[in-house]
């Protein structure tokens, strides 16, 4: 991990060395629209995420949370507006998409581990085929991150042999093996049995403490309160409200956020 923190620090220094440039935000979205047919899934979304910032995105079902974070690594194409990731414009050009994807890691609700590969093979595939690492290097790296998510002993198993919580931690390790600067999480604990939610959230907290930039769609309000720098509340494709957690939970400005909070905090 020390190497990775150094990478992040190195990047920040590079920018600091040119004081005339203000620090490039990790993510900048300007008037982003996404349509599915007649339906507007993202409706003029503006969002800026600073490096190292932790954002929790919440909102009712269908409000566009997944669409929002999936546009950031171009798994969904936005239709209008601008998206910059670490200063790279997502303009549908292959090389920019690749560059952005190399900077971002993503964790899905349904894990999406490759079922026909062992845990270790899942972790070394991208480092070997994308970053051109040797197998030995990639294995070292994978074991490093598997140790970090506390499952080094499962490396030779197949995803199907692991619990949901273990699978999700493997998915986090797999993403970290590409040394992303930004991590995107789409409801990482929603598919888990309650007793496994904690181990995944702990892993995410650890990542947050190490300075990772994180955007996380989640309804785990305890996690949001503890980890998030800012809560982004969405409704009907719009970012309705953004605030620090204490403020958002204590006095949400919009009516919609109030009813939403009433529903999830019973």
């Amino acid at each position: 991990m020390s190497e990775m923190s150094m990478n992040i620090a190195g990047g920040a220094e590079g920018v600091a060395a040119q004081p005339q440039l203000r620090e490039v935000p990790a993510v900048r979205m300007e008037a982003v629209y996404k349509h599915y047919g007649d339906f507007t899934a993202l409706n003029e979304v503006d969002l800026k995420v600073a490096k190292g910032e932790k954002i929790v995105v919440c909102g009712p079902s269908g409000s566009g949370k997944s669409t929002l974070i999936r546009c950031i690594n171009h798994i969904e194409k936005h239709d209008e507006g601008l998206i910059y990731v670490n200063g790279i414009e997502l303009d549908h050009q292959r090389k920019n998409i690749d560059a952005v994807r190399r900077d971002t890691g993503m964790v899905f609700q349904s894990f999406n581990l490759f079922p026909h590969m062992t845990v270790l093979e899942n972790c070394i595939l991208a480092p070997m085929t994308v970053s051109g690492m040797s197998q030995a290097e990639a294995k070292d790296l994978a074991m490093h991150f598997l140790t970090k998510v506390r499952i080094p002993d499962q490396a030779e198993k197949f995803p199907g042999q692991l619990s949901g919580g273990q699978q999700q931690r493997v998915a986090i390790a797999r993403a970290l093996c590409m040394r992303p600067k930004i991590m995107l999480f789409d409801e990482p604990t929603s598919a888990l049995d309650p007793e496994m939610v904690k181990e995944v959230l702990e892993t995410m907290k650890k990542l947050a403490e190490e300075g990772m930039t994180m955007l996380c769609v989640t309804h785990e309000m305890g996690f949001a309160r503890e980890v998030a720098d800012r809560i982004v509340f969405m409704n009907e494709g719009k970012v309705v409200e953004q605030a620090a957690p204490e403020e958002f939970f204590k006095n949400p400005k919009s009516e919609r956020a109030r009813t939403f909070l009433d529903q999830i905090i019973h």
Partner: peptide, 30 residues
């Protein structure tokens, strides 16, 4: 083969060829 498999491969910045050969083809073949 679920769309999630392809999305995970993209998110890891695997090339289309690697995605096909290492992720979708083996699962589809099965």
């Amino acid at each position: 083969v679920s769309a999630g498999q392809r999305e995970a491969a993209w998110a890891l910045s695997l090339s289309p060829w690697t995605t096909f050969r290492r992720v979708t083809l083996p699962q589809a073949f099965r």
